[in-house]
């Protein structure tokens, strides 16, 4: 695992990718801080961070596009499969390297709050809290990018898919405003999602019985709950979708509150997509 980690990290700094990522993020942090904090004479650094977080939509696809897509293109993935290391170790090693690249601008940005503190009253806890959240949100988004890079051997394709997914995630809260909020609509939407999940279970396990059991048990629970408490379903689906947006979870940090559940949410997303990445790589062994 350490070998994979070291190789991945060094490859970020052998090419331009690592430098471009760090420079880009720092440039935007600097620009937003200069505009909002200095020119706008507003001492909350979290405000600058919050406003520039959209930059992840552009820089994360660049950071993660090559992680597995390039292995496949160069046929070095065969080496990874043949080495006496598990796919889990490979994914952890690579994800750690991505996280190390991402932590660099986060650490550099730690000098902003004391500088701002010279000119006004800064809430340090809240400012550093937002930097921590910014980092964890980035890692969670990157884990999605890493997963998507296992699906193709083209870096452009991998970056494109990642860009689209992050874009949808960014505008998710706005988009759910257009969804109907009636209880029946929510119930139907949730049922459709359960059926889609059942199809995914069937596709991944090739076991029709498992998929059917999944659909009947979860779908049945959904139906029973809806028949007993239809009121609970009013606006439920838009609510769930809205909560799944990682960018909107960040808003609490701008409001000077440290939301531990949001951090846990980011960690859960990271772990989940790392798991998906391992599954996707293992599946390639089977095809």
């Amino acid at each position: 695992m350490t070998a994979i980690f070291k190789r991945e990290l060094s490859s970020y700094f052998k090419g331009f990718t690592g430098y471009v990522y760090i420079a880009f993020v720092l440039f935007f942090i600097g620009t937003y801080s200069a505009t909002l904090n200095v020119r706008g004479t507003y001492p909350s650094f979290e405000y600058a961070i919050g406003n520039m977080s959209f930059i992840y939509i552009i820089v994360i696809p660049i950071l993660t596009m090559r992680v597995f897509a390039d292995e496949k293109r160069q046929k070095t993935d065969q080496l990874l499969y043949a080495l006496p290391v598990s796919m889990g170790q490979v994914v952890v090693g690579k994800m750690l390297a991505v996280a190390v690249v991402m932590v660099v601008p986060a650490i550099v940005s730690c000098i902003y709050p004391p500088i701002l503190g010279k000119f006004g009253s800064v809430n340090y806890a809240s400012a550093y809290g937002s930097i921590i959240a910014f980092f964890f949100m980035g890692v969670a988004l990157a884990s999605i990018g890493v997963f998507l890079s296992t699906l193709t051997d083209s870096q452009a394709m991998s970056a494109g898919m990642c860009f689209l997914v992050l874009l949808v995630n960014y505008f998710q809260t706005t988009l759910v405003g257009f969804l109907p909020t009636s209880a029946l609509a929510s119930f139907l939407a949730i049922t459709v999602v359960i059926l889609i999940l059942a199809v995914i279970v069937w596709y991944m396990t090739k076991n029709l019985l498992a998929a059917a059991i999944f659909a009947v048990v979860i779908g049945g629970a959904n139906f029973i709950y809806y028949s007993v408490r239809p009121v609970k379903y009013g606006g439920l689906f838009p609510d769930i979708i809205g909560k799944l947006s990682m960018f909107s979870r960040f808003d609490t940090f701008i409001e000077s509150a440290f939301d531990l559940t949001a951090i846990l949410y980011y960690l859960t997303v990271t772990a989940l997509f790392m798991f998906f990445t391992v599954q996707s790589l293992e599946k390639r062994r089977w095809s």
Partner: peptide
């Protein structure tokens, strides 16, 4: 394998060190 699985951004020495460690 049929295509030698080399990382083209590494020198042969770095590559061998990586494989040995892995």
């Amino acid at each position: 394998p049929e295509h030698p699985p080399l990382y083209l951004d590494m020198t042969a020495e770095e590559y061998l060190k990586f494989v040995a460690e892995a």
